[in-house]
Computed example of a mutant assay.
Amino acid sequence: MLTLKRTLFWSLSTLLLSTGSAVAADLEVTDARLRLLPGDLPGAGYFTLHNRGDSAVTLTGAGSEAFSKVMMHVSTEEDGMAKMHRVERVDIDPGEDFTFAPKGHHLMFMQRTKALAVGDSVDVTFTFKAHDPLPVTFDVVSPAAQ
């Protein structure tokens, strides 16, 4: 049943994305890469989101058929200890860029649903508050890649 729900969700997302969006034309993602760890360890997603529009956008999450969970996190250092916290939203002002990078904001890709290898690509759909979803293709890279 879960597989059917997931398939229906992604089918509906694809249908909605195929109708086009002015917002998508104002948003661009570059350098999207997923650092893949061995086994079922979580992977980390990095990219830069460019808001070329004339209004702020709020990134609220992401999803992918290749993973059961995709969450936004931020890494910080407190008292010499590295910590990671979940982030519910990221606001990007008009004309601004926001970079998800090592030791900062990143996507956590958890619980793979299919086999992946370095060199593969993964389709991810970004979700926004009050804006249409944005499909993005991530390149799968080694854990040593930045």
Rank of each mutant, 00 (worst) to 15 (best):
M1F: 14
L4S: 13
R6I: 13
T7F: 10
F9R: 12
W10K: 10
S11W: 10
L12V: 09
S13M: 14
T14N: 09
T14A: 15
T14P: 05
L16P: 01
V23R: 01
V29L: 14
T30A: 13
D31V: 10
L34G: 03
L34H: 02
L37P: 03
L37R: 13
G39L: 10
A44N: 09
G45P: 05
T48E: 10
H50M: 06
N51S: 02
D54V: 13
A56P: 02
V57T: 08
L59V: 03
L59G: 03
T60F: 03
G61R: 04
G63P: 02
S64H: 06
E65T: 07
E65D: 11
S68P: 00
S68W: 04
K69L: 15
M71V: 14
H73E: 08
V74C: 06
T76E: 13
H85I: 02
R89P: 02
D91K: 00
G95W: 11
G95E: 07
P102Q: 13
L107M: 08
M108L: 15
F109C: 08
F109P: 02
F109I: 05
F109M: 15
T113R: 15
K114V: 06
A115S: 10
T127G: 11
F128P: 00
A130P: 00
H131M: 02
V136T: 07
V136M: 07
F138R: 03
D139V: 07
D139E: 15
D139A: 15
V141L: 07
A145M: 00
